[in-house]
Write a protein that binds this DNA or RNA. Structure first.
Lengths: 192, 192
DNA sequence: AAAAAGCATTGATCTAAATCAATGCTTTCA
DNA sequence: TGAAAGCATTGATTTAGATCAATGCTTTTT
């Protein structure tokens, strides 16, 4: 059940069996069905979710009710509205499930207590957020400096498993494009 | 000399005098003149720089030799090519000074030793990177979901001190626009 | 003090992506 | 199993921003 989570944890910070059991006591499991919300805009985000199985997305909705995907969360990734989680402000994102999914949930109080009491958990958290920062910086850099073609090809190269599992119009949304434009980009690439 | 650095540190994690002195021994000061490079693309980034005074920018240069500003670093901010610093890969960004500046430099070995030996330094690092992550997420969200006008106005509202000190064409570059376009956007806004 | 470099603005034109609209295919569900 | 919803593609048109080019102003350099 918590396999992937601890695999991921151990790959960053090695835990003993005891430590693992200790952490496990702070975690809960949650199953969520396709299309179900994990978080809705306006609510306060009360947990961090680690994806054991399945796929989710975080997205915002603008005034023209267009959806903009901020982040995908597949197996092995963490998904949350971190700003809301940390500040207690209302969430600006929605998070919902693209497939039936299984999540490892870390509540706010669990997170804080583990941070206070367990240096290894703090290290894990630091490494996690650092990785997320670097991934986002790569994305931002590519948005402001590369052509759409390059960006699409980089995306496919970097996240082939996402491209396979997620409808194309969501990838367009993630890239800040309309579905029509992405379709034409693909056509252009394939004819080269 | 290290005033702002420790002010910033204490605001996140409170230090005793002794701890402060201990950390100080790991830091060095560096003055850098306007237009001078702190880091050049292709070199390995060997330090994190905290800006005590002055202003810098991190930017990439694309195949058409257009510059794209990734980040500004004014007083109180940290600037680095974190990916290169952490992995030892060649840097993909240039960093140079927009004004004569004073930096607090943390070398790779200092950073690693402090992380290993001083829990408060790890906490400081974690909070710092978390803040940087949230700032970047806000920027990314605004890029993929807001109009250019809104984005410019958000920028001005959020970083008025940057807008005052930095030439307009660099703000255009930061926003992924040409200088001409930003000029027209401003005109459009002012005539409302 | 003169020359050069850097900068913001404006105009004219071009181009990439958005929008609007329609079609056919596939998956979902009632 | 039949209807509806979801999805990708293509075409026609519009639009926002890029590009090319020129001007005047300010700051820096010599």
């Amino acid at each position: 059940m918590y396999n992937l989570f601890f695999q991921h944890f151990n790959s960053k910070v090695q835990l003993t069996e005891d430590e693992q059991a200790h952490i496990k006591a702070y975690l809960t499991l949650k199953k969520i069905r396709k299309k179900q919300y994990l978080l809705q805009e306006g609510d306060v985000c009360k947990m961090i979710a680690f994806v054991e199985k399945g796929a989710l997305r975080a997205y915002s909705v603008d005034e023209n009710s267009n959806e903009h995907i901020i982040q995908f969360g597949l197996e092995g990734w963490t998904i949350s509205d971190l700003f809301s989680f940390l500040t207690g402000e209302p969430a600006t994102y929605n998070i919902d499930a693209l497939e039936d999914s299984e999540l490892v949930i870390i509540s706010k109080s669990a997170h804080e207590e583990l941070l206070q009491t367990m240096p290894k958990y703090e290290t894990f958290t630091r490494l996690n957020i650092t990785g997320a920062y670097l991934a986002m910086q790569r994305r931002l850099t590519s948005i402001i400096s590369a052509s759409v073609e390059e960006r699409y090809q980089d995306f496919i190269a970097l996240y082939p498993h996402i491209a396979q599992r997620v409808p194309q119009h969501m990838i367009a949304s993630y890239m800040g494009l309309t579905p029509e434009t992405l379709s034409r980009i693909r056509k252009r690439i394939s004819s080269k």
